[in-house]
């Protein structure tokens, strides 16, 4: 059985697709067969970030409607042969997603894959709901600013009450916090919420902090998940996150907040 991870946030533009691409690549690079699914039907981006937009023939909706098989729609990544992408449809909207259809696809993928990463659209409507409904783990991507934190909190409420696990009274979805676009300089200037501030509001297990970085935009534009840029701070941050998710003990980096709780607790390696 595969482990289903949803990458979600509520708010748009915080780095969900960047994160989905990076962690899917990271998991595959660690030797786990991984599929990443774009749930943002109508606004598909994941294929661009993954650099496979020219190879899209069939999409998620085609498979749901039975117009193509999963194997026809899955695109093998050019950098890693354990990673597959299921792109969203650009010509349809989220109403084309059905719970049964999504459930069937995830069940079929589960037989063959170790991890399934669901890239959620922004908002809390149908697309976002179906992306998280079947999840086992949730990566909540948050920017260090109040509206993003508030939306994440809302999303956490939905995760704990509207998921399949919640409906079946199973063990709840495991929730992890990913703080992205973090700038320790701006935190020091008081322009940005610190890790502690966000943790105080969300009280969630912190999986990692991704620093604000030019390498993210460069990676997106060139269609290479940023985790492949091993020299970049953001790439390293994602590598740490994948390692921590898989149970490795990695000290937190990129926080650089002397007064902070984590600064005291962990020896920063840089």
């Amino acid at each position: 059985m595969a482990r289903i991870i949803v990458v979600t946030s509520g708010k748009g533009g915080v780095g969900k697709t960047t994160t989905s691409a990076a962690i899917a690549m990271g998991l595959a690079k660690k030797g786990h067969k991984t599929a990443v699914i774009d749930f943002d039907v109508g606004l598909r981006n994941l294929d661009l970030i993954m650099g496979c937009e020219r190879r899209v023939v069939y999409d998620f909706i085609n498979v749901i409607n039975g117009e193509a098989t999963l194997n026809q729609a899955l695109i093998r990544d050019k950098n890693c042969n354990l990673l597959y992408i299921l792109p969203a449809s650009q010509t349809r909207d989220k109403d084309a997603l059905s719970q049964e259809g999504v459930g069937k696809i995830l069940e079929d993928l589960s037989k063959d894959f170790k991890y399934i990463v669901c890239d959620s659209p922004a908002g809390i409507e149908r697309g976002a709901h179906l992306a998280m409904y079947f999840a086992d783990d949730a990566f909540v991507v948050t920017n260090p600013e109040v509206s993003s934190v508030r939306d994440s909190d809302r999303m956490l409420g939905i995760l704990s009450s509207k998921s399949r696990r919640a409906e079946r009274n199973q063990e709840p979805i495991k929730e992890y916090l990913l703080l992205s676009r973090y700038s320790s300089e701006r935190v020091k200037l008081g322009e940005m919420l610190s890790v502690d501030d966000v943790q105080e509001i969300l009280s969630l297990h912190l999986l990692g902090v991704i620093p604000e970085s030019k390498s993210v935009l460069n990676a997106s534009n060139s269609g290479m998940p940023v985790i492949l840029d091993e020299k970049s701070d953001a790439g390293q941050a994602y590598a740490d996150i994948v390692a921590r998710y898989l149970g490795e003990d990695k000290p937190h980096r990129f926080i650089d907040d002397k007064k902070g709780f984590f600064g005291k607790l962990f020896n920063r390696s840089k």
Partner: peptide
């Protein structure tokens, strides 16, 4: 015992005891 997140509503016919945080918007 779980945090009550933004957007969630809890109604108790008797007393209500919450052992976790209640977020803004809840």
């Amino acid at each position: 015992t779980q945090p009550i997140r933004s957007g969630q509503r809890i109604y108790a016919a008797g007393d209500l005891i919450v052992l976790a945080q209640v977020s803004a918007g809840a």
